[in-house]
């Protein structure tokens, strides 16, 4: 990989971390409402996998921890932040919020709050790619907790039977909300569960972006090559609680410290320094430019954007310009 791409990837991860931490601050200032699920600590997974995908061409879908996936897929960060602020300029026009970021212009098909619901939606997107005979694939990011829903089993089965071009990315961060994996799940290694559906799978370190990219490249090659679905598991850790009301009481400080040592940004930054690609001063400069971009572009845009109009409350519920031939109303002369 070129040095400039490595620097860009490091900057992207620093940007994603700052985006999340800045939205935490805005939440504390009550500028963001509802629930807010932050991705800090897991950046290498979405960044690495989507670096290997064809963003804007392939379909991407995920759960409610969706800001970073949306931005890496191509959604403008300022529109994602405006969505968190509930503004009309937001990715979902202020109707979705943090958990429901959509940007179909780059084929980012949404964040969903029903755990496990994106499994079948992703397989459906893949089915559409297959029907249209394009070389697109669908990429579905979900956590380990989603694998205990019925949709996991039902969808992996159908995706495998029908050889759909879908990549299931399991971000195993060890906790399903606040319940540790060994207390909720009979099989700790999630990739092994795909074998029940005759699906190829593998498990990798999710903190090292080089490892993530290498594994994702091969999995995506498999899926795009018409070989059917693939299930890839990354071991990772979220640094913050499940959502904003989470006390983190279910895990030890020692465990948090151990994972903090393997912070994906720290790991990658140190690797680039050791290779002589970057200096501490370069990284400080990146952090400064990220800080400036978040404040001067992303936050400013969200702050200054207008709220949706109350008159538009029912807009977007159904097709706003339906064809009267299909919809009606029924006319007296229209009885067949």
């Amino acid at each position: 990989m070129k040095a400039s791409d490595q620097t860009r990837l490091l900057r992207e991860m620093i940007f994603f971390r700052r985006f999340e931490e800045r939205s935490f601050e805005a939440y504390m200032e009550r500028k963001i409402g509802g629930f807010l699920h932050l991705y800090s600590g897991q950046e290498a997974v979405a960044t690495g996998v989507l670096e290997m995908a064809r963003c804007g061409h392939d379909y991407v879908i995920t759960g409610y921890r969706d800001h970073v996936h949306a931005i890496k897929a191509g959604a403008p960060a300022r529109e994602v932040m405006a969505e968190l602020y509930g503004k009309e300029t937001g990715s979902s026009r202020g109707r979705g919020g943090s958990m429901h970021i959509f940007d179909p212009t780059v084929n980012f098909m949404g964040g969903y709050a029903l755990v496990g619901q994106p499994f079948p939606l992703a397989a459906g997107l893949a089915m559409a790619c297959k029907l249209k005979k394009t070389d697109q694939i669908a990429i579905c990011f979900l956590g380990d907790g989603a694998n205990n829903q019925g949709t996991f089993h039902e969808t992996l089965n159908m995706a495998s039977v029908w050889k759909l071009p879908v990549l299931f990315v399991c971000e195993n961060n060890l906790y399903a909300i606040g319940t540790r994996i060994d207390r909720s799940t009979a099989v700790r290694d999630q990739y092994k569960r795909a074998a029940a559906y005759n699906m190829e799978s593998s498990q990798h370190d999710g903190q090292d972006i080089d490892t993530v990219m290498k594994a994702a490249r091969s999995a995506i090659h498999h899926v795009r090559g018409g070989n059917g679905p693939y299930f890839i598991e990354f071991l990772t850790y979220r640094q913050r609680g499940h959502s904003m009301s989470d006390s983190n009481a279910y895990r030890s400080k020692e465990e948090e410290r151990e994972w903090a040592e393997r912070d994906p940004i720290k790991l990658y930054g140190e690797r680039l320094k050791a290779a002589g690609r970057l200096t501490d001063a370069d990284i400080a400069q990146i952090e400064k430019s990220v800080q400036d971009e978040i404040e001067n572009d992303v936050i400013r845009f969200a702050e200054e954007s207008p709220e949706p109009r109350v008159e538009d409350l029912t807009k977007y519920c159904l097709d706003d310009n339906p064809n009267p031939q299909w919809i009606g109303p029924l006319r007296g002369d229209q009885h067949g």
Binding site: P120, L121, G124, A128, M158
Partner: peptide, 15 residues
């Protein structure tokens, strides 16, 4: 539930 969901996902992409 999931085959209905697969239909929904496909519909989001124009099917």
């Amino acid at each position: 539930n999931s085959y209905t969901g697969i239909g929904i996902g496909a519909s989001m992409a124009g099917v």
